[in-house]
């Protein structure tokens, strides 16, 4: 399954009530300890770094594998957070205010709380991009969506 299959899929509660759609997938990255300066430090890009991704040259933490934490469910399917879920930054006015307003009510459910992913009977089965339907397990938690 690709992340793209889950995005925009409808999410139902244990009782079948519609809760919204999947707007994002939250992953946790394992942080790997690297020697001072990160991967490729001191390498000349012209010489050794030809095929290294550009991000390897930026000063950033090295990362290992990714683990699926859960899904972000938005009642109105409000698209990207534009990065504003990570911080409580309020500038430049009015963009974060508009983004957060659109995302009111968006919550995080743990991947363990997803009981089933099945074909959506409301979707046209002949369509190539038919989205599945997700049902949550009884007793699931609505966790806060923010990271900040």
């Amino acid at each position: 399954m690709n992340v793209g299959d889950l995005l925009d899929a409808r999410v139902l509660g244990p009782d079948g009530a519609a809760l919204g759609v999947v707007v994002d997938v939250r992953l946790a990255l394992e942080v790997v300890d690297e020697p001072e300066g990160g991967p490729g430090a001191g390498e000349d890009r012209e010489e050794a770094g030809h095929d290294a991704p550009l991000s390897a040259h930026a000063r950033r933490d090295a990362v290992g594998g990714a683990r699926l934490v859960g899904l972000l469910v938005g009642p109105r399917g409000a698209g990207s957070f534009h990065g504003y879920e990570r911080t409580d930054v309020r500038s430049p006015w009015p963009i974060p205010q508009l983004v957060r307003r659109r995302h009111r009510g968006t919550f995080l459910v743990r991947w363990e709380d997803v009981a089933s992913v099945e074909a959506d009977p409301a979707a046209d089965p002949s369509a190539d991009d038919a989205k599945p339907r997700l049902r949550l397990a009884p007793g699931y938690d609505e966790l806060p969506a923010g990271l900040g």
Binding site: H82, G83, T87, V89, S91, P92, I95
Partner: peptide, 12 residues
Amino acid sequence: YVPILVVANDPG
């Protein structure tokens, strides 16, 4: 220009 402005405000 909107994404530039947004990222220029991102402390991360």
